[in-house]
């Protein structure tokens, strides 16, 4: 059941922190003294344990134990979270966590792969939500369907085919802020490499979105294998895009070359036009033509047209039943410090 057999290398504390907080700003590091100032910190996660409707214990990830005078029942969880300045909250009836362990333990088998295991655990959690034993805010669980394992595997095959590498490189000005190079081997990843390794492979990277993608692609394909996708952008731009509610934000950023996808796989082209897809219903061919006209695909325009033919099988959103970027966006928009999760510019 343990699926870990990868080499993880090339991250120092700063580059790792920046990578993680890009999608999980709630995990941003705080100074020890900030704990003493916790009452003034916005955000965080509220966890409430209750029994017969009464609070047994309420703790806040930034403030420690808290009192919830407005709590009458789990229906008040949102109000309690709001009072604590938090957009995220979990309430569990006494015994619910133990029951979650029961269900996972009773259903998981040694031969289960990672996808099956994760879906099984999420499914058990959802059951408890449906049974009213567990309450989660925001209620992503209700809006996001759980696909069957085989669909998840197919989506994974589209995102990063076996033997291929995917790269995300983020800059701030001319400085390489963080990066991650992933390579898939079999069902999982066998390489998770950070900016130190990327620098050793490529040499200097200075935020030139015309030169750097080419250099990275050549180096990665030389050392690791064919690249399935590459994302190159200033960190702030990528963060804004992840948080954006605007339809077509990605397509626009690509057209303006604020973000470069090189190579751009079919699923990324479709995802980039997802907002526009919504606007035009099923006329996906037209959308792709529009993207092509905007120059989004550049030299890959021929391929982009081919993508239209394949659209039904590469639209990850359609495949999964939800848009993973929407999930990330919902989390980020709910995070108090998402816009500026890391202020370590002066860290020596």
């Amino acid at each position: 059941m343990s699926g870990r057999a990868w080499q993880l290398a090339g991250f120092d504390a700063r580059s790792w922190h920046r990578l993680v907080t890009l999608v999980a700003p709630g995990f941003a590091s705080h100074a020890p003294a900030a704990r003493e100032r916790g009452a003034r910190v916005e955000g965080g996660l509220l966890f409430v344990l209750y029994d017969e409707g009464e609070v047994v214990r309420a703790i806040h990830s930034l403030r420690g134990p808290v009192d919830l005078p407005m709590w009458r029942s789990p229906a008040d969880l949102a109000a309690c979270a709001d009072a604590c300045g938090s957009h995220f909250a979990v309430a569990a009836a006494v015994g619910a966590i133990e029951e979650l362990y029961e269900r996972v333990g009773g259903r998981l088998h040694r031969g289960d792969d990672v996808a099956s295991g994760l879906l099984l655990a999420l499914g058990a959690a959802r059951e408890l939500i449906d049974e009213g034993e567990l309450h989660v805010i925001p209620s992503l669980a209700r809006g996001v369907p759980l696909p069957p394992p085989e669909v998840l595997r197919r989506a994974w095959d589209h995102l990063l085919p076996d033997g291929h590498a995917g790269v995300i490189v983020l800059f701030e000005g001319v400085e390489l802020e963080t990066a991650v190079v992933l390579r898939r081997r079999g069902a999982g990843l066998d390489r998770v490499l950070g900016p130190e390794v990327l620098r050793r492979m490529v040499g200097r990277l200075d935020g030139d979105l015309r030169r750097d993608p080419r250099a990275v692609r050549e180096a990665v394909e030389r050392e690791l294998g064919p690249m399935a996708f590459g994302v190159f952008a200033p960190t702030t731009t990528l963060r804004e895009l992840l948080m954006s509610r605007e339809s077509g934000a990605w397509a626009g950023a690509l057209a303006r070359r604020e973000v470069v996808l090189d190579p751009m796989p079919p699923w990324a082209a479709v995802a980039a036009g997802a907002g526009a897809l919504h606007a035009v219903g099923r006329r996906s061919r037209d959308v792709l033509s529009t993207l092509d006209a905007l120059g989004v695909f550049g030299p890959f325009s021929k391929r982009a047209r081919e993508v239209g033919e394949l659209l039904g099988s590469v639209d990850v959103r359609a495949m999964l039943g939800f848009d993973p970027l929407d999930v990330v966006g919902t989390i980020l928009r709910g995070s108090a410090n998402a816009a500026h999760p890391d202020d370590d510019d002066h860290e020596p």
């Binding site: 504390a13 700063r14 790792w16 590091s29 020596p348």
Partner: peptide, 8 residues
């Protein structure tokens, strides 16, 4: 959760 070197 990641920790900045300064905080550690």
């Amino acid at each position: 959760p990641p920790t900045r070197a300064t905080h550690t």
